[in-house]
Design a protein around this nucleic acid. Sequence first.
DNA 1: GTCTATAATATGATAGAC
DNA 2: GTCTATCATATTATAGAC
Lengths: 189, 189
Amino acid sequence: MNDTGARLIEAATEAFASRGFHGTTTRDIAERAGVTPGAVYVHHKSKEDLLYAISARGHDNVLRLVRDCVADGSQPTTEKMRHLVREFARWQASHHTSARIVNYELRFLGPEHFASAQENRRQIQAIFRNLVAQGCEEGTFSSDDVDFTVVAIFSLCIDIGRWYSQKSHWSVDEVADNICSLVMKMLQP
Amino acid sequence: MNDTGARLIEAATEAFASRGFHGTTTRDIAERAGVTPGAVYVHHKSKEDLLYAISARGHDNVLRLVRDCVADGSQPTTEKMRHLVREFARWQASHHTSARIVNYELRFLGPEHFASAQENRRQIQAIFRNLVAQGCEEGTFSSDDVDFTVVAIFSLCIDIGRWYSQKSHWSVDEVADNICSLVMKMLQP
DNA sequence: GTCTATAATATGATAGAC
DNA sequence: GTCTATCATATTATAGAC
């Protein structure tokens, strides 16, 4: 059996994803985790602290994921990009519950926690930007505006958390493959 | 000067967009509109009613907008698509405050209001789907999966409400033009 | 139509027993 | 570590005076 601290994180993830941070009460979370409201505060010092725990874990996992994708220097830019987009999109779809919180509930973090999340996102975005820019220099890719193209790639992937659900008629892999091939068309010279 | 009913809608739009539906109190809305909390209920019977008013107006405006874009039957498919995507993206950017509510606060509507919004969105989506499908039949466009391509076009446009703000270094027209040209690349045979 | 005042309830968080 | 009980406050919505 899971320990209560972890079960509370899971419960909060589901609750925040479906009803939003402010639409979720500490009682909702406690009930979903099978404990009474008082027990929440033994493991997490506030509701915002639960949000931060979910946000931090999500951002850390994504940053590690995208770093690994571009780590193999021997791969050609096109292959790196395919790998990067596919894995990033895969994460958004397979973790769509966490993804929703990571991408849409950010603004409810306290100022320091928000800044920490933003720094993480900046680093994730920089990895995409560097790869797009490199491809453009090589002539492998083309883009009228590199920064905007990165925003667009993010839009395609992040929006997955808004529309994707288990009952979607596309599997996680189909979503990732489709987005990957659309991004490659966007980058085509 | 505006009448209070309309000022309350404006106030609620800004409040819901920045703090979310459940993060906004009727006191916030009343204060922003320059009235006391009691006055809210003379004009709108509940907080959810305010959300629905904003949602309904937004959805109606978008549906009218996209219908007008495809009304001119004499235009070639490519031109129709350019026009449609540009205007849809323009709306999301220029009305990014309303757009955020229309696209992200939907789930907090009551069941009937939610169903009504969903029906509206279905019609908007159908207009995009028909045009993509028509272009694919003609050979003007190509797509591995028409439904997914429509989802992707929507992702690019709807996500504007998440990342765009007045301090963005792209103007509304630049956003619309960039998205339009990326969509046309995605549809290229 | 707007105000002041308030009812009825919900909420985040804590105290103290076990 | 969890429970019961509760504090202090906030919240949606309404009642009645002006």
